[in-house]
C-alpha cells in the first residue's frame, strides 16, 4: 500500500539529516512496527506521512499514487494518533468524537455513524457522557485511539499508543490494533516496548540517525541471525585453553568468568564442554540461541544513551 522511496529530510539546511535515504514497503492490512531510539527519525517520518511537513527529497506513494494526490482523493484516509492525549479535557468523550469528526467535514448522519463506530470499537459507550479530563489513563488512551478512527481511515499512524497504561488496557489496545488490521486497515506503529511490537507487528523496521538499519518480518529478524553462545564459568578460563580457543574462535570475548561467542555453530558445543571438563572448569550458566528483538535492536543501535 505504502512505498517510501529514498526519503531525505532536514529541519534546517545546515543541520544533520533527520531522514537519510529511508525506503520502506508497507503492505495493506498489515501492522508495521517502527523502532528506533529517541531522535532516530520516527516522528519525522510519521509527520511526512501525515502531511504535516512537505517532502524535500524522495517520494511516498500510496497505491501507486503520490501522497499529495492520494490525500486529495482520500482526505480522511490517514489518521494520526499522537503520543499525548490530543483531545479536549473540558469536552465529554462523545463531544470530542463529534468535534473531531465534524472538522473533517462529514455530513451530520455520517458523522454520527463514524462516532458510534469509534465509540464501540474502543468500548467507550459507558463513559460517552463523561468529561475526557476525568477519565483514567487507560480510558484516555482508548479515547485517543477512537478519535483517530472518526474519519474511518485506511492508514493509522500510531505514535506510542500505550504509554502509561495498565496491562489490561495495553492488551485491549493491542487487540484493537490487530482488529483494525484484520478488517483491512494498515497501521504504522511506533513504540519503545519490544514485547508489544513482537505481539502486534507483522514487519518491523529499525531506524537510527535517519537511516533504516534493518527491515523485514519479525521471524526473519529474530531467527535469521546467527546463534550466539554465552558461558558463565566457575573460574576464569585457563590461559592455555583461552589461547587455543582464540585461534579457533577469533570473535570470542572474555571478561573475568564470562566467555561469549557472537556466532557459534551447534555442532561445536559438545567439544568445548569436553575441553572445559578436561581442564576441570565447571559451567555455572549457559545461554545459546538467536537474539530476541531487543538484543537485535540494542546491537544495531548501540547501547549509548541518546538524550
Amino acid at each position: 500500500m505504502i512505498q517510501i522511496d529514498r526519503l531525505h529530510y532536514r529541519y534546517r539546511a545546515a543541520s544533520p539529516p533527520a531522514l537519510d535515504g529511508v525506503s520502506l514497503d508497507i503492505g495493506r492490512g498489515s501492522v508495521y512496527g517502527l523502532l528506533g531510539p529517541n531522535g532516530a527519525g520516527k516522528t519525522t517520518l510519521i509527520s511526512l506521512l501525515a502531511g504535516l511537513r512537505p517532502l524535500q527529497e524522495g517520494g511516498i506513494t500510496l497505491d501507486g499514487e503520490p501522497l499529495a494526490l492520494w490525500r486529495a482523493a482520500h482526505p480522511t484516509a490517514i489518521a494520526l494518533v499522537p503520543q499525548d492525549y490530543a483531545f479536549y479535557s473540558m469536552l465529554t468523550v462523545a463531544e470530542n468524537l463529534d468535534f473531531f469528526a465534524g472538522v473533517q467535514g462529514f455530513p451530520r448522519r455520517q458523522r454520527r455513524e463514524h462516532c458510534a463506530a469509534a465509540l464501540a470499537f474502543a468500548c467507550l459507550e459507558a463513559v460517552a457522557g463523561r468529561l475526557a479530563g476525568e477519565l483514567s489513563g487507560g480510558l484516555r488512551r482508548r479515547l485517543n485511539l477512537a478519535i483517530g478512527l472518526t474519519g474511518a481511515p485506511d492508514l493509522l499512524l500510531l505514535d506510542e499508543p500505550t504509554v502509561g497504561v495498565d496491562p489490561q488496557s495495553r492488551r485491549f489496545l493491542l487487540d484493537a490494533v490487530k482488529r483494525f488490521a484484520a478488517a483491512g486497515g494498515t497501521v504504522l506503529y511506533t513504540s519503545h516496548y519490544m514485547e508489544e511490537v513482537e505481539a502486534v507487528c507483522d514487519k518491523v523496521a529499525i531506524i537510527d540517525d535517519g537511516k533504516v538499519l534493518l527491515a523485514g518480518t519479525l521471524a526473519g529478524m529474530k531467527y535469521g541471525g546467527a546463534a550466539a553462545l554465552r558461558l558463565e564459568l566457575a573460574r576464569p578460563l585457563p590461559e592455555a585453553l583461552a589461547a587455543d580457543w582464540r585461534g579457533r574462535f577469533p570473535e570470542m570475548e572474555t571478561a573475568k568468568t564470562t566467555v561469549a561467542f557472537p556466532e557459534f555453530a551447534a555442532d561445536a558445543l559438545a567439544p568445548i564442554f569436553s575441553e572445559l571438563a578436561a581442564f576441570g572448569v565447571a559451567v555455572e550458566q549457559m545461554e545459546y540461541g538467536a537474539p530476541n528483538l531487543e538484543q537485535v535492536f540494542m546491537q544495531l543501535t548501540r547501547h549509548s544513551l541518546r538524550d
Binding site: L52, V81, P82, Q83, D84
Partner: peptide
Amino acid sequence: RQRGTLERLFAQRTPFGL
C-alpha cells in the same frame, strides 16, 4: 500545541483558518 491536538487537526487536513 503541547498535547499534539493541533498536529492531529492538521493531519486531518483541518484548514488553519478554521
